Amino acid sequence: MSATVTAIQQPNRPQTNSIQQELHHIGEELIASLPPIEELSAGQRRGMIARYSAVLEGNFIYWMTGAYLSAKSEEARSIIEENLLTEVRDSHPRMLRKFAMAARAVPSDSDALAVFPQLTAVRLFIGRLSTAPIIAMMAFFEGFIQEFMAYLADLAKRQGSEEREYTDVHGVCDIEHSEELFRALEVEMAIASQSHEPADLFEGVYLLRSLIQAIIADPARSVTAIRGS
């Protein structure tokens, strides 16, 4: 075995541990920014569920496919493939659509338009197939999702829904998915360090953070604030 191959296969743990801590901090800030659920109107609850559904139902598999296509190591591809297999085999988009329907929050045109600029930015970022930044983004998102599921489930419950398959599944499986993606990131960062390809590791994370903020935000409240200023 050559020295180069050995270096690639050794996980870059100190660096990815600090990255994981930073991404966890970003996720915690997003969770802390969620509006108190008891203060939301039925329309605001519906809107948040609908915007979330408008983004995730048709895009998560696309994002993860971008991670798979960009991966340079067999280990990373294997990890991402397992994630994709779960999404497709268990029909997670179906779970999310059932969840939105039960909460009377099927996305409308206005819901899709509310997140369109931020979603477009993430899509274009994925299209560049920059391996480590995409995997960092997906690892961050998997970690955020499992923290967000309790809030999302409560939104739906207050909408009169008893449908919990989507939130129950993602509140558990995404913990493992996030850890596995950090393992993939370790391998891909080792490869990237040898290729000397410049990349902003957190670019996708910051774009995704903006998209999540658009999901959380109430467009009507934002318009009112602008008109009142």
Rank of each mutant, 00 (worst) to 15 (best):
I49N: 02
E22V: 00
E28W: 07
I80T: 01
F60A: 14
L40E: 05
E81F: 12
I61V: 11
G58E: 14
S73N: 02
E39H: 14
A67Q: 06
I80A: 02
R45D: 04
S18I: 06
R46W: 03
E28G: 08
I61G: 00
W63T: 11
Q44C: 04
Q15M: 05
Q21P: 00
A42D: 14
G58D: 15
Q21R: 08
Y52K: 03
W63Y: 15
E22I: 00
S18G: 02
L34M: 08
T16L: 15
T65H: 04
S53R: 06
E39F: 10
E22D: 12
S78D: 12
A76R: 06
A32V: 08
P14G: 05
P14M: 11
Y62A: 10
E39D: 14
T16D: 00
P14S: 08
G66L: 02
L69P: 02
L56A: 15
E57F: 03
M48P: 00
T65L: 03
A50T: 12
L34D: 02
A42G: 12
I79H: 03
A42K: 10
E28H: 10
P35D: 02
Y62C: 07
S70W: 01
G66Q: 04
I79V: 13
E29R: 14
K72T: 11
I49Y: 02
E74A: 12
S18W: 01
Y52A: 09
E74L: 10
I61N: 07
G43V: 05
E57W: 11
Y62P: 13
G66K: 04
L56N: 15
S53Q: 14
H25P: 00
G43S: 07
I26C: 04
L30P: 06
M64Y: 10
P36Q: 07
R46S: 14
E81W: 12
S70H: 04
K72P: 00
L23R: 11
P36C: 08
Y68H: 13
L40G: 03
N59R: 05
A67N: 11
H24E: 14
I61T: 09
S18F: 05
M64S: 11
G27D: 02
A50Y: 06
S73L: 04
E57Q: 14
L40K: 04
A76Q: 08
M64E: 15
A32G: 09
L30H: 11
V55Q: 15
I61W: 05
G47L: 07
T16V: 15
G58R: 12
T16G: 04
A71C: 09
A50E: 09
I37H: 03
R77N: 10
Q21L: 08
P14F: 12
L30V: 10
A54Y: 06
E38M: 10
E28R: 11
A76C: 04
Q20G: 05
S53H: 12
S41K: 01
E38V: 03
S33H: 05
A67H: 07
S73F: 02
Q20S: 13
R77S: 05
G27F: 05
G47D: 01
Q21C: 01
S33P: 00
A54T: 11
Q44S: 07
F60C: 00
R46T: 13
I31N: 04
F60R: 01
L56S: 13
G43Q: 02
L30R: 12
H25V: 00
N59Q: 11
T65N: 06
A54K: 05
P14A: 10
Q21Y: 05
G27M: 08
I61Y: 06
L69W: 06
M48E: 10
K72F: 09
R45M: 06
L56Y: 15
K72Y: 09
I37L: 09
